[in-house]
Amino acid sequence: MNQQRILELSVGAFVAVGLAALLVLALKVSNLAQVNRDGGYHLTARFDNVGGLKVRSPVTIAGVRVGQVSDIAVDPQTFEAVVQLVVSSQYRLPTDTSAQIYTAGLLGEQYVALEPGGEEEYLQDGGEIRLTQSAIVLERVLGQFLFNKAAGE
């Protein structure tokens, strides 16, 4: 009887530890805690150039992750990149919010930074962010810099 209890206890502990490990993987290791997919809402943003942005790249406000890129496509008419963002529903963004693509550090990943504006109205699910600034492509910056230098002399 006593042995049976020890058995039950250890198996119970084993299952609990296993499930706890899964929970750690979900909440501490992965991004499940940050983006609640069901609760998030979609926004569209158009960029001339997305650089190295990828699906699942982070979306941040003031440097804090609030969502992620869910889809990247090219508009066949305008040849702009159409980026779908999922933003956690707890953040309501004014309609004049702007989106920029930045790079974290020199070699880091690229992410979409949102800068909320001051409008009274808020973006709805499926709304579009009109103010965008494309990714900074290093070659282009260098080229421009050299060109300016040359023109200045």
Partner: peptide
């Protein structure tokens, strides 16, 4: 699966 989750964690 429990053991694998434990391993990763």
């Amino acid at each position: 699966p429990l053991l694998a989750a434990l391993f990763s964690a």
